[in-house]
Amino acid sequence: MRQTTPNQDFFRGIWNENPVLIQMLGLCPALAVTNSVENSLGMGGATFFVLCGSSFLVALLKKFIPHEVRISTYILIIATFVTVADMSLEAMAPSLHKDLGAFIALIVVNCMILGRQEAFASKKPVSRALLDAAGTGIGFMIALLMMGSVRELLGAGSLLGYNIMGPNFEPWVVMILPPGGFLTLGFWLLGLTWYQERKKARLANDGAGAKERRAA
């Protein structure tokens, strides 16, 4: 495994290896509860908490976890934090908890979280694991917000409940229904691929131009 600096550990998860947009992990919550910005924030926050908590504990306990049962141990640790998040949300924000419904409990099977434990937290010191978890959590939150803002803007004409599009806007109801989730993610991915291709083409062009100039 190559060595990384703390900075890389933190920023990698936010964009270059964004869990949802690049690695395609944790798609279920990214599609299911992003029909408004508020729900996206709630889901992102809960996942952030679970990810940081379990990365911390796994990195702390890695010497004591036998190799053979490590996956089950990780799942147990994650499930514990999910239960904590579930119960605190129910107590502090009952309406949000009702909106998110079963998807809070389903954070347990978010492959992104288990993936970070297996790939990172179980091999690195506590501080690095926390940085990595925070970066990935923020990346996940950004992806959710990208989905949530587009869907709420087009589907309800508002952002965070404030009307943006004016009274004459006819909401695209389909965007806040299930198909809208698939379509929004599909078009975001299309846009990102297009952007990357363009960047690559420009770099190649620049490279060719430099060579020509050198030849001349």
Binding site: M24, P179, G180, F182, L183, G186, L189, L190
Partner: peptide, 11 residues
């Protein structure tokens, strides 16, 4: 790739 799969899934 994935973008196409997503849009098919949407339909």
């Amino acid at each position: 790739g994935t973008a196409l799969v997503m849009i098919i899934a949407g339909s």
